[in-house]
């Protein structure tokens, strides 16, 4: 990054870059608090089944495994994409970003299929307190992943126009952090919501 710049301007750039990444990191931490509160709400509401189904009746281990596998592999592919970007390899970065977006889209498709099936079967968020809290938390995560996919595709288009620049590298690093963060949230989702119900 600093090969052509003088030491001084490289320092200023890297200082500015640190500030930008720290700002994004602070956003992720506040996002973690948002998800934390949705988890707390879910924990309180989980027992309020009303006349609706329990999680054991509606959750499917196979679907969950597929979703988790897609997200887990995408966390590796986005790390590879950011590595390519750091090395200045535009094509590599574009390919692996796109691969991550495809994996993310597969995750979203499975999620829409699951949530849509529940709504069609009359088990939408209005059915019980448990389903309200479940839909809120899972859809909030799904919305984040969808935003990440749009962000990733946008970056691929920008990369195709100008190649890896310091501006785009900085954006790719933030998307990578965002993506890893969402995978951490998903660990919380399957550990606190899905697996305890499926084992019951």
């Amino acid at each position: 990054m600093s090969s052509e710049a003088t030491n001084n301007s490289a320092e200023i750039f890297s200082h500015h870059e640190d500030e930008v990444q720290l700002g994004f990191w602070l956003f992720l931490m506040s996002d973690a608090v948002l998800f934390g509160l949705l988890f707390a709400t879910y924990a309180i509401m989980a027992g309020n089944i009303a006349e609706g189904p329990t999680g054991t009746e509606i959750f499917d281990l196979f679907n969950l495994s597929l979703q988790t596998a897609l997200l887990l592999v995408s966390t590796l592919t986005i790390a590879i994409a950011s590595r390519h970007a750091m090395l200045g390899n535009t094509k590599g970065a574009m390919f692996w970003l796109l691969a991550s977006c495809v994996l993310g889209a597969g995750f979203i498709a499975l999620e829409l299929n699951e949530l849509g099936g529940l709504v069609l079967a009359g088990n939408g968020p209005g059915r019980s307190g448990f389903l309200s809290a479940f839909f809120t938390l899972v859809s909030m995560h799904g919305l984040h992943v969808s935003a990440g996919i749009i962000w990733g595709v946008t970056l691929v288009l920008q990369l195709s126009r100008e190649g890896v620049s310091s501006r785009l590298l900085s954006r790719i690093m933030r998307l990578t952090y965002f993506w890893h963060f969402l995978d951490i949230v998903w660990i919380g989702v399957y550990s606190t919501i899905y697996l305890p119900w499926i084992m019951a």
Partner: peptide
Amino acid sequence: RPRANISLVFAVVLLFIMIGGTIWIM
């Protein structure tokens, strides 16, 4: 990046207080 670590610790403390407190009180 010490500031990233400090904000992470702060977020974890907040999460403990808010999640733990919510479950306790409710």
